[in-house]
Nucleic acid binder design. Sequence first.
DNA 1: TGACACGGTATACAGCGTATATCTATGGTC
DNA 2: GACCATAGATATACGCTGTATACCGTGTCA
Lengths: 210, 210
Amino acid sequence: MLARAVELADEGGLEPPSMRRLAESLGVTPMALYHHVADHEALVDGMVETVLEAIADTSTEGGWRPAVRRRILAARAEILAHPWATRAIETRHAASAPALAHMDWIMRRLFEGGLSADLVHHAMHALSTRMWGFTREVFPTPTMPEGAEERAAALAGFASRYPSIVRMATTAPHASAECDSDAEFAFALDLLLDGIERRHEGGWSSELRS
Amino acid sequence: MLARAVELADEGGLEPPSMRRLAESLGVTPMALYHHVADHEALVDGMVETVLEAIADTSTEGGWRPAVRRRILAARAEILAHPWATRAIETRHAASAPALAHMDWIMRRLFEGGLSADLVHHAMHALSTRMWGFTREVFPTPTMPEGAEERAAALAGFASRYPSIVRMATTAPHASAECDSDAEFAFALDLLLDGIERRHEGGWSSELRS
DNA sequence: TGACACGGTATACAGCGTATATCTATGGTC
DNA sequence: GACCATAGATATACGCTGTATACCGTGTCA
């Protein structure tokens, strides 16, 4: 039943199926589902667990940093395969067993790398959503009109109000094309891992701040 | 009317009011609202804009890095004052004028600091949700039972399954107390700003990767 | 044989967003 | 002053949601 729910959602839906739709797809009355799941929230909980359990195991070779990087990219691959999953994950209220297992896996690598519990703590906070392989683009950059002259006109109006946005959009490499979200994700992830490594090597402690 | 909607939501609600509830609170029929707003989505759009417009102006003194940091913390202060705002922001489909203005403000500081358009582009991606002053804690760490012996028992079971999580929770400074989310936010923010500054000084370019 | 739990059903309720049609009061124009 | 368009409120209704409650048939076990 959870499997069917995941299938249903995967078929293009950005949201988990309603109880009625799932019931119909199972050839069953809506209320029958309540014998298997407490309520709709619990259904979504189960769907998320199903996805998180499928995160591929990754090797621990090469030290904590590449190991954590690989693991997070594996989580990303799994979660992005389900278009509804990121939103569903964001709306969970508590960590489930597979979620805790994933966090524990990462933290274990950090401890094995010799990081202090203090730094592990802050590192996990810093990674927070990114450790699941996604970062919500809160506001996607507005799409430009199709035609060449409409595009120019829109840019002109835009440019006076938001000159720096336009400057970036018109001069950064590839910025006019679709953004490579995998590359952007890796960039930010490496930024964070870099910083964590640097804090670790510098003997960082939250007592000393900075 | 937008003001009333924001008020209503602020009164403890984690979600924007329904059309019916807002109408009732205004002493008016639900359908009357549709003369002022296209639909419920547009209502939430307006509420978000109202909040974003209230982000305090901050000074540009001291170079791009402290300026950006101050600005982001100002956004954080404003947005966290409205418990419903982070979720509402995450569900918007397009950037509104005040959202674009905020992004433009930050990018302007980056350009003034001499960063390449390439790096500005990636930096904005890396900051993505953080530039609004929040980071969703996707899975809050589970709450522990109240009593001392229940707490110990829970920890014991937990420890065998998730040893590294427990290790962190029991040995990191302050980890047993409530996390200081402001400090965690600043930690991650500084990690990112650090990395961006470092890339900038090192003449980073996306062609060269790294 | 009886008890009981499990899984499915039928019905109903309260809430949601909103399409449609209708009424009313206001302000501008001839 | 008469007319009319328009803005804003209304009333009603539709289809959707989650789910409380009550009921029923089937299998297992004492």
